[in-house]
Design a protein around this nucleic acid. Structure first.
Lengths: 151, 151
DNA sequence: CTTTAATATATCGTGTGCGATATAAAAATA
DNA sequence: TATTTTTATATCGCACACGATATATTAAAG
């Protein structure tokens, strides 16, 4: 009836599906490390810069503590990170890599390139992948701006 | 260390974030109807064509029954749909809209346009939104192909 | 200095996603 | 027809997302 209610018209459904499928394509690579995609995101942040507080992580990932804290707890239980209260400000919680967490970087570093290649091999053109980046950044920036306005 | 492990380099993180943020921007509109985004997707399919079997829905949404069945059970409990076994093939489960489910179409039809306008108003250009569609379709098609190969 | 407000993180409940497995019915095969 | 295989859906367990709320600590105001 209403064309705007057709699934095939919806940008949102495409984003939802693309995100699910590409995350799923990471999963087999992570399986032998016993980590998940969101855990991988946090590890990447810590490989970039160790000893970050929870707030730094939630800010970069655009997630709330009610999502990140439980993930950090699982990662701590697995021995990938440790969490300790900041002495300067006892409210803050500093997240640090363990040696196990540090070692994983070396083993995982080829995964993103490997996946990109397999997508290109299966027919997606590199230029199209590259074209997505600024468009998604613009979209994320715009919606992020809306979210902040409402606060 | 490894540039491919920087968060800012990753297409996947952008898709993950964009999907989350845009879905979140739908949520306030759905709140007064008591539905969620995935439930909205299923309603759209049924508004397009009523009385579909579970398999039709999983195929269109690229989801498995282990995700869709619980959603359908919740929707049935809320009185939006009913589920009944097919007499022709007793394995199949036919999903049909209730009158409440049908009535919701009229009330929700403006939501997608409304959201698109608000994103454009906040600085995202229509051409950029339109440009995303074929790129995402290509990506989804490519990754979907990979997924099928492994079966 | 005490009270109040703001900040940082954690907890709880609900609804997905998804791997693994189970169940039941229909189709294919022996 | 009896047996095996395939198909369609459901169940179970775990890990997110996220709204709502709680707790503890620091900063600001009176």
């Amino acid at each position: 009836m209403y064309p705007q209610l057709k699934l095939d018209k919806q940008l949102c459904f495409r984003l939802y599906t693309a995100a699910r499928l590409i995350t799923a394509s990471y999963t087999p690579f992570f399986k032998k490390f016993g980590i998940t995609y969101p855990q991988y995101l946090i590890l990447m942040l810590l490989w970039e810069k160790d000893n970050q507080v929870v707030g730094d992580i939630t800010e970069r990932l655009l997630l709330e503590t009610n999502t990140v804290t439980p993930i950090l707890q699982r990662m701590e239980k697995q021995g990938l990170i440790i969490r300790q209260k900041s002495k300067a400000d006892n409210r803050k919680c500093i997240v640090s890599l363990t040696n196990d967490g540090k070692r994983m970087e070396e083993q995982i570093k080829e995964v993103p390139n490997c996946l990109a290649h397999s997508i290109v091999d299966d027919g997606m053109e590199i230029d199209d992948l590259k074209a997505l980046v600024p468009l998604l950044d613009k979209l994320i920036g715009t919606i992020g701006k809306q979210t902040k306005q409402k606060e």
